[in-house]
């Protein structure tokens, strides 16, 4: 994605802001893309277990080159570290953890987030042949909370926060929170509530870049 979008939070700041919402004792699944940055966040005294769809339970930051273990990857294929107490399970058990409701929050990237709680992240165009579902539909349908991390607008400046998704949805009425470079937002039916704006951004600027009403 674009490196030209410099308004508001950086990707790591977006991830850090969302990670501030993780509560002590939570099991949190991190998806491909920006969400992987959440495992680099220092959660302080809060004991948070990161789950990856490939069956890694209890992983930590991405390791620098030369220190990686090539047998250990997160959902994005990055070589990560293990935290004390980590465990490995096979794929069917990893998704048993997901479907049985044990994931307190799942953090995913998205192309569109709608104020009615729908979101889209598996097909780049309505008529696209093929798509990338991965674990997103299982996570979206079964996690207790769905957190999205995405750029506020497309490269061409079109809003990604909208009233209704134009793209095929991943799940309906499930989104809990959305963090973008513009701030932190909560879907509330016909619009989003602004929980926090990134430094330097005004509500009017955020409204101009959003495809749904924003309430302060």
């Amino acid at each position: 994605m674009s490196g030209t979008e410099t308004k508001g939070w950086s990707r790591q700041q977006m991830a850090d802001r969302l990670a501030a919402e993780f509560e002590d004792g939570w099991i949190v699944n991190l998806g491909v893309g920006i969400p992987t940055l959440c495992s680099n966040t220092d959660t302080g005294d809060r004991d948070v277990v990161f789950h990856s769809e490939n069956g890694v339970i209890g992983y930590g930051p991405v390791l620098p080159e030369g220190q990686e273990d090539l047998h250990l990857v997160n959902a994005g294929g990055q070589n990560v570290s293990l935290r004390p107490g980590a465990a490995i399970v096979h794929h069917a058990d990893s998704f048993a953890v997901i479907r049985s409701g044990r994931i307190d929050a799942t953090v995913m990237g998205a192309y569109e987030a709608a104020s009615n709680g729908d979101f889209a992240n598996w097909k780049v165009a309505v008529n696209a042949k093929g798509g990338g579902i991965g674990g997103a539909m299982d996570l979206a349908a079964c996690a207790r909370r769905v957190f999205l991390l995405l750029e506020h607008t497309t490269r061409r400046g079109a809003p990604r926060l909208v009233r209704r998704c134009a793209l095929p949805v991943t799940a309906r009425r499930v989104v809990t929170l959305v963090a973008t470079n513009y701030g932190l937002f909560k879907p509330e039916g016909e619009g989003f509530r602004v929980l926090e704006l990134a430094p330097g951004l005004t509500l009017d600027e955020a409204r101009a870049a959003t495809g749904a009403p924003l309430a302060a």
Partner: peptide
Amino acid sequence: LEAGQVEAELVPQGTLAE
């Protein structure tokens, strides 16, 4: 895929594993 030279069944990952 676009040329129709291969067929594809897209399955959610947890459903595929199960």
